[in-house]
């Protein structure tokens, strides 16, 4: 790890200013930043420690929304009674992520900004080329080992998967990222790789995430996060789904349904086609399975990741059927 200087910020403005100096990087839980510094991917000149700032770690839930500070720890949000009651998919996406130790360290703001686990991206010594690290240098994953790479939202420049779980639940429930001077929906916050895979979010230089907000809804209250992976715990998703369902008063017809996918796309992926196919319908196994197939519209395989195209719709269907059963609406 290259050496850097260390600066402990005592206010948000101080932190923002320190980052604006060349090569400054915010340090929250450090579980992405220090990991990538050790890989030689991140080379900050100054590390700006924001963990001693007060007031950014709060979790407030009322009837209309949840507001969570950027420095709230993953573990504290996962265990929060009101989050678990009003946004079970959000709580589950966190408790199924990483390990207990990492969840005690990692923050909500840092979590959104975690980087891809693409092994080519993470190993600059062996693979100098990578369009995310060195724009225009090429993508060694294309034509390489692609078991964990994305099938949705890819481009000719990059097929790296967005690895996080939380953002998948957030995008399903129309959450937004609070940048202090502006608020951006989580869906708009993350960018598709296109020709510029080095730009992953709309976060500008010197901007800082101060928190996130999640609107309350009946679908969010009746929701789940289903994560399928190579081992039962402490592993990133091979495919995951955040699903929420609200039925009409008849107890059968879908009024509102939210579906988002993780582990298969270059950004947290809202599957609106699946939602549209199910609104106004009764949920039986066949209808749900057919609609879930729409989640893979436009999917492209690069060989090793072909299995995801079959796996992801099954994960979506299983999650929808579970939530249908939960509200007694399984036809």
């Amino acid at each position: 790890m290259r050496d850097f200087s260390y600066f402990r910020a005592s206010s948000v403005d101080e932190a923002r200013n320190a980052v604006l100096q060349a090569g400054g990087a915010l340090l929250a839980g450090g579980t992405t930043l220090l990991d990538l510094a050790k890989c030689g991917v991140a080379e900050p000149a100054t590390v700006v420690d924001i963990t001693h700032l007060s007031g950014l770690g709060e979790i407030n839930v009322d009837a209309s929304s949840a507001v969570i500070g950027a420095l709230a720890r993953m573990g504290d949000v996962a265990d929060h009674t009101q989050i678990r009651a009003a946004f079970p998919a959000v709580a589950e996406s966190l408790s199924l992520a990483a390990s207990a130790q990492l969840r005690n360290m990692a923050t909500i703001g840092g979590n959104l900004l975690q980087r891809t686990r693409c092994p080519y991206f993470r190993d600059p010594a062996t693979f100098p080329a990578c369009n995310k690290r060195n724009p225009g240098s090429g993508c060694p994953a294309i034509g390489g080992v692609t078991r964990n790479h994305a099938v949705l939202g890819t481009s000719d420049a990059c097929i790296a998967t967005y690895p996080g779980d939380l953002a998948v639940a957030l995008v399903a429930f129309d959450a937004f990222v609070d940048l202090g001077s502006r608020k951006v929906s989580v869906d708009d916050f993350f960018l598709l790789p296109g020709d510029t895979p080095d730009r992953e979010t709309v976060l500008g230089r010197g901007e800082m995430i101060v928190g996130i907000g999640i609107p309350a809804s009946a679908a969010a209250r009746n929701s789940t996060y289903l994560k399928v992976r190579d081992r039962q715990s402490y592993e990133f998703a091979a495919a995951s789904a955040a699903v929420g369902v609200e039925l009409e008063a008849d107890g059968k017809t879908v009024r509102d349904i939210r579906v988002a996918l993780g582990g298969v796309a270059t950004k947290p992926w809202r599957a609106r086609a699946v939602e549209q196919a199910l609104i106004g319908k009764a949920l039986d196994v066949e209808t749900v399975e057919r609609a879930s197939g729409l989640a893979m519209e436009g999917a492209v395989s690069h060989g090793g990741n072909r299995y995801k195209i079959e796996l992801a719709p099954r994960v979506v269907a299983r999650a929808i059927l579970k939530m249908a059963q939960n509200v007694g609406g399984l036809a």
Partner: peptide, 11 residues
């Protein structure tokens, strides 16, 4: 519980 390998001493 935390991981000391991903924690800066300064932090």
């Amino acid at each position: 519980r935390v991981l000391s390998c991903l924690t800066l001493a300064a932090q």
